[in-house]
Design a protein around this nucleic acid. Structure first.
Lengths: 207, 207
DNA sequence: TCAAAATACGAGCGATTATTCGCTTTTGAT
DNA sequence: ATCAAAAGCGAATAATCGCTCGTATTTTGA
């Protein structure tokens, strides 16, 4: 485990103080992205908002992209925790209940930090090609396809892969658009959307 | 029609030569966005690729954003021509046929210049807030809602606005994702998607 | 034919950016 | 108390950016 030479010694936080610095930097990145947009998120500004010097920033993050990537990881982690816990129940439920649960969870996930999610989804892609979100969706797709296969006899569709694609893409788009653009305010609006989306998907799968 | 003062005299192309310059600039913008991404699309580079000087660029486009906006307009124009022609027939057709037509047209529209569409959809939003695409979608939504109202007695849904949202969002997401990410190659794949999407939407509207 | 208008040019300005590096301060194990 | 390692600092650098402006060239209309 030979250390890289002194010319690029990006460190890993080991002490308490440095942990706090790293956290502050990631948090500052999130705040700036949300409040001022990607263009204003310069490394100097991020360090300033974090109450840290630029030099410290570069001790832990080799580039600006690494900082954004860390933020995305943190957000994905939070989403994953919400989703995985609630989805465990669904895999053994009948289709109607499972789909309803899936839609509800999707809305919940999008509501975790909507503004951050929005920025991450609509402003970030240009950064190199951070396909972490895409990876996330692929997991979601595989999970759903497995579920469909476990209920194959109840499902009308022939190509379960295609069916999974149709369902996952639709649910994602509906919940994403509703939460981030149309702004679901009331609980009634949310329940109406859950009802409609469930009807859409269940009808497609079973009728 | 008082001209703006000399301090901001961005002109409007009137001669043949200047028309060609403007076209070359917009075309160069498209090429760079597609081949090198947004970050590489500097005004100096755009002018260079267009075979034109930066000074000429700023004679017709007051800012870099104006250039991108012009490109978006050009693309939207092309899409609009394809969509409006083909959609005129659909408004008088029964639901099943109309939806099928709608899906087919959506795929066709996304296939006009997929790479440009991709860049425009996934990399551009950060620019100021070019909501031209959103405007486009709103038109699409209004049109579909009108259609649903004209067939109200055949439709099962209560809230036609919500139903239109569900349908338009799903169709857009399915065709967008299929064409730009999953890459529909064969005609069979395309027809399969049309079948499935039609079944999804028609089932939702009528069963 | 020729002057005025339109068009084109491109070096260069000022601002901003990501990143570096020599230095100081803090920490923790002895 | 000591001291090496870890963490922190921020002025400085080099690159890039959007954009201007004085000048050169082409086109137009009479």
């Amino acid at each position: 485990m030979a250390r890289k030479p002194l010319t690029n010694p990006r460190k890993y936080a080991s002490q308490d103080r440095s942990r706090a610095t790293v956290d502050a930097l990631v948090e500052a990145t999130a705040r700036i992205l949300i409040r001022e947009g990607f263009d204003k998120a310069s490394t100097n500004r991020i360090a300033e908002v974090a109450g840290v010097s630029v030099g410290s920033l570069y001790q832990y993050f080799p580039s600006k992209e690494a900082l954004v990537a860390a933020l995305i990881d943190r957000h994905n982690q939070e989403v994953r925790q919400v989703v995985q816990g609630e989805l465990a129940e669904a895999v053994n439920a009948p289709v109607e209940q499972a789909v309803r649960k899936l839609v509800a969870v999707a809305i919940k996930a999008h509501r975790i930090d909507p503004k951050l999610h929005y920025v991450l989804a609509e402003q970030i892609p240009r950064v190199g090609r951070l396909e972490k979100v895409e990876t996330f969706n692929r997991e979601y797709y595989a999970l759903f396809k497995d579920y469909l296969e476990s209920r194959r006899d109840e499902i009308r569709a022939v190509d379960l892969g295609l069916a999974a694609f149709v369902c996952v893409t639709s649910i994602e788009a509906l919940t994403h658009t509703a939460v981030l653009h149309h702004k679901i305010v009331s609980d009634e609006a949310m329940n109406a959307l859950i009802d409609e989306a469930t009807r859409l998907i269940v009808g497609y799968l079973m009728n």
